[in-house]
Nucleic acid binder design. Structure first.
Length: 846
RNA sequence: GCGGAAGUGGUGAAAUGGCAAACACACCAGCCUUAGGAGCUGGCGCCCAAAAGGCUUGCGGGUUCAAGUCCCGCCUUCCGCACCA
């Protein structure tokens, strides 16, 4: 027989193995009830991981937060949906295939199996029956289905666009795979810009709604909302046409087709237009092509500008290049003043923002000022500051607090008045209009890669672009494919895939060989969870209606723009397709901080990676999880210190010992509460009920789980200090019962294995997850005597004890009779007494 | 440059405008022991030999009876955006 000391040892490995098996045997434990349930629903979701094969500490933290919340909501009687899935498409699988000669599918599914084991070992309460794996046809067929719906509505379209191209990989790279202008796999290889025909989703059609919707997302961090606002980049202004001046003198003829043309510019400051002393075109502007076609010298200079811009763009540092420009020798006419201004081409004008052309107003724009100074272009002030303080008249003057001067009939108007008036005139004269533009661009979804959703389109020689009919979905991604480093879409080299027949004419045709961006997969996966097995539709709208919007979404802030804006877009498209009723996918969003070590993000190159498996093996899953909640509030970065994990593990050991030690008392004790507890029983019950109140409150709002763990530690410390009295029976058995049961219940969201074990130890045979969350008794949660700080002139002097509800007068008296206070105010005049009930007494003396 | 967040002991951190440093880690002293990465007791912001006392939340001002907390200015760090017309 093992001796007593052995028995009194907390053995997380044994406990966790036991419960892992029990939970695996009960698939209903973490399953949501059907949408017909009359319990209130709660959908808690953590962002799904990419199946790299290994969970990292950031995952442990993310899922520990979500799991704690889910468990607490289960205990509070909610119908909880807490699903998990895999963001399983993407380039790493192809890279792994190259490196290890393993097919991407095999590699990915193997990784999923490994990570699922890790999740189970960590005790995460996911409903695996609703698991979603985005690389499987039963999921990605619905990507294709949505694509076709968008195509029908004109929300999916093709156009030529610039892409990042790695000459070494001979493939397109996503923006996030371009690091400092180089390929992420070939860090000395500069990424090139190439023009390719690409598929786009018309997210810009929803720009205004995506922007306005942010105001209503008050359960989102302000930071994320701000980032999205900036990303969408709404800008109000005016489009105005400058007329291209007729050129008659050149070889006696007119430039055919040019003289009637206009140069449309976008400006937010049309009020400054009388100060426009040049028009600037982006080097790629179509008009520039027309100019250079007949001017070899100009062409050479423009090509140079293009090259500069390209280099800068490839270096990802467009803001840093010096402003260069070249005069075209042409002139444009200001539509308001009739003034003739030179047309320049400049490297700082972006073709893909606004109209690719600007009016340059050096006196009232920093960039134009810099450019004009450099090239000696006239700088003409047309806005006068309202109040000419010292130096406020210095140029460039960019404020809108001003009045128009040198602006003909508009002189004397304020900037805002002038903008309105000038817009009216432009509209009437049909040379311009009020205009709102967005920085947001349409979402390029084509990828020249293998491991992604095939785009369900067919190219027919006769019928052109033809959509794959719904009844031919899914377009299956072929598995027999050799992954090579050759350029172009890998699917293009699979004849069985490419060659098909046209759905319209039945003639020979070719399939589209591009695949979809993996952000498509993650844009709607959380809808699929609610009805994951549906073979007829992406989901049943009635079920989605029950579960949506998601009550709480939890993930890293690195997805603030991409995933979180794409999924908002997708929801709005689905709403307009009549599939969902909610405008937004997620009511509340929580972005947790990073896990760092030694002051830096964990990374292989820094050698500071901590493996979850390792932590679990040494200290158990409960300790690893609880430490990740205890070490910092969840929204802040967390500094991983292994000694801290050991500390939590020791704490759980103390819990284990004290509960197992007194479990026999608790098991046989009456479930009746003690009517009038006194002495130590009362003290302990007070601490207990204060702790319940604190933890419960935190779950409801603040989420400072670190302080909740600390509060539970305090409770255990106090119980441990009472060890002798517990042992002697001085604390009544029903009180012991309540203390131990409640302690275990409070621990259940944070340390689920230990809580399950101790719950059983206390004689319970049902799942602790189904036990009701404890309620704090307000009469027990408050003290009847409290300590009040006493200040003299705001400085702390001492502390006095008063009854909890003491009124200011009583508090004042208690303070004044205190010896220390009397000494300090002797010989002085008491000017004023501030006594705030329950808070403090401050004596103002002279 | 613009926007956001944060600066508190040796470390992670705590503190509805009301006792700064709870809870832990590390460290120090001691106890226990079947030597376990175990358990228990005590100490642990700074100044002062100790006590008494004084000082202390990045820096400087302010509001207030009272400021880590609110306001203004500055410094530092991190994050995002950045020639967006």
């Amino acid at each position: 027989m093992a001796d007593e000391k052995e028995q009194l040892r907390y053995d997380p490995a044994a406990i966790e193995q036991k419960w892992q098996q029990r939970w695996a045997a009960d698939p209903t434990l973490y399953a949501a009830e059907p949408a017909t349930s009359n319990k209130p629903k709660y959908y808690v979701l953590e962002m799904l991981p990419y199946p790299s094969g290994q969970l990292h500490m950031g995952h442990v933290r993310n899922y520990a937060i979500g799991d704690a919340l889910a468990r607490q909501m289960w205990m509070r009687g909610y119908n909880v949906l807490h699903p998990m899935g895999w963001d399983a498409f993407g380039l790493p699988a192809e890279n792994a295939a190259l490196k290890n000669n393993t097919p991407p599918r095999e590699w990915t599914l193997g990784n999923i199996a490994a990570m699922k084991r890790q999740f189970k070992r960590l005790g995460m309460g996911f409903d695996w029956a609703t698991e979603v794996t985005t690389c499987l046809p039963d999921y990605y067929r619905w990507n294709q289905w949505f694509f076709l719906r968008m195509y029908e509505k004109g929300l999916a379209y093709r156009k030529k666009s610039k892409v990042n191209w790695c000459p070494e990989c001979a493939t397109v790279l996503a923006n996030e795979q371009v690091i400092d202008g180089c390929c992420w796999r070939h860090e000395d290889t500069k990424v090139e810009q190439r023009d390719l025909v690409q598929w786009f989703f018309r997210i810009t059609a929803y720009a205004q709604e995506l922007l306005e919707g942010l105001d209503k997302l008050d359960g989102w961090p302000e930071k994320v909302r701000t980032m999205q606002r900036n990303w969408i980049g709404r800008s109000e202004g005016t489009e105005v046409d400058f007329f291209l001046e007729e050129i008659k003198q050149r070889s006696g003829t007119r430039d055919q087709g040019l003289e009637k043309q206009r140069i449309r510019v976008f400006t937010t400051r049309v009020d400054t237009i009388f100060g426009a002393t040049s028009v600037q075109l982006a080097p790629e502007h179509p008009l520039v092509k027309a100019f250079t076609a007949e001017d070899a010298d100009l062409k050479e200079k423009v090509d140079e500008l293009l090259a500069q811009q390209k280099t800068a763009r490839e270096a990802g540092d467009l803001g840093a290049i010096d402003k260069h420009g070249v005069a075209t020798g042409r002139f444009a006419v200001n539509p308001y003043s009739g003034e003739r201004v030179p047309i320049w081409v400049a490297n700082y004008i972006l073709m893909d923002y606004g109209t690719g052309a600007i009016m340059s107003v050096p006196a009232h724009d920093e960039r134009d000022f810099e450019f004009a100074t450099k090239y000696g272009i006239e700088i003409r002030q047309v806005i006068k500051p309202l109040e000419e303080a010292d130096g406020s008249n210095a140029l460039p003057f960019v404020s809108e607090d001003g009045m128009l001067v040198n602006s003909g009939e508009y002189n004397g108007l304020s900037c805002v008045q002038a903008q309105k008036k000038l817009q009216e005139v432009a509209t009437r004269g049909q040379f311009g209009e009020e205009k709102v533009i967005f920085r947001l661009k349409d979402w390029g979804v084509s990828r020249q890669r293998y491991w992604g959703t095939p785009i369900p389109m067919i190219h027919c020689e006769r019928d052109g672009l033809v959509a794959v009919p719904d009844d031919q979905l899914p377009v299956i991604l072929p598995e027999k494919i050799e992954i090579t480093q050759q350029g172009g879409s890998p699917l293009g080299r699979v004849p069985d895939f490419v060659n098909t027949t046209c759905p319209k004419c039945g003639g020979p045709a070719r399939r589209e060989t591009d695949t979809m961006d993996t952000f498509v997969d993650s844009s709607w996966y959380f809808y699929r969870y609610t009805d994951a097995k549906n073979a007829k539709a992406p989901f049943d709208p009635a079920i989605v209606k029950y579960w949506f919007p998601i009550d709480q979404y939890i993930g890293g802030v690195e997805h603030a723009i991409l995933h979180l804006i794409y999924s908002r877009f997708w929801t709005k498209v689905m709403r307009d397709l009549g599939l969902v009723e909610n405008d937004e996918p997620t009511k509340r969003l929580f972005t947790q901080g990073m896990v760092i070590k030694d002051g830096a993000k964990m990374s292989k190159s820094k050698g500071n990676v901590v493996s979850p498996d390792d932590m679990v093996a040494r200290y158990g899953a409960d300790s690893a999880r609880m430490y990740s909640l205890f070490a910092a509030p969840p929204d802040r970065d967390l500094d991983w210190q292994e000694d801290g994990v050991a500390g939590v593990s020791r704490f759980l050991g103390r819990v284990w010992r004290i509960v197992t030690k007194y479990a026999p008392v608790a098991r046989t004790a009456s479930a009746q509460t003690v009517d009038a507890p006194a002495g130590l029983s009362l003290t302990l019950l007070r601490k207990l009920h204060k702790t319940i109140a604190k933890v419960t409150q935190d779950f409801e709002g603040r989420w400072h789980f670190n302080t909740d763990v600390a509060a539970i530690m305090e409770l255990v410390n106090e119980m441990q200090d009472a060890d002798a009295q517990l042992a002697s029976g001085e604390v009544a058995a029903p009180v012991v019962r309540e203390l131990l049961r409640t302690l275990v219940l409070l621990l259940a969201p944070f340390a689920p294995f230990l809580a399950a074990e101790l719950w059983e130890e206390l004689g319970e045979d049902g799942a602790i997850l189904r036990a009701p969350w404890p309620k704090s008794d307000p009469s027990l949660a408050k003290e009847d005597e409290i300590e009040i700080p006493v200040q003299i002139n705001g400085k702390l002097v001492t502390v006095v004890r008063v009854a909890a509800g003491a009124d200011p007068g009583t508090m004042e008296t208690a303070a004044l009779v205190n010896d220390k206070v009397r000494d300090r105010i002797a010989g002085k005049t008491l000017v004023k007494v501030i006594a705030v009930p329950g808070r403090a007494v401050n004596l103002v003396v002279k």
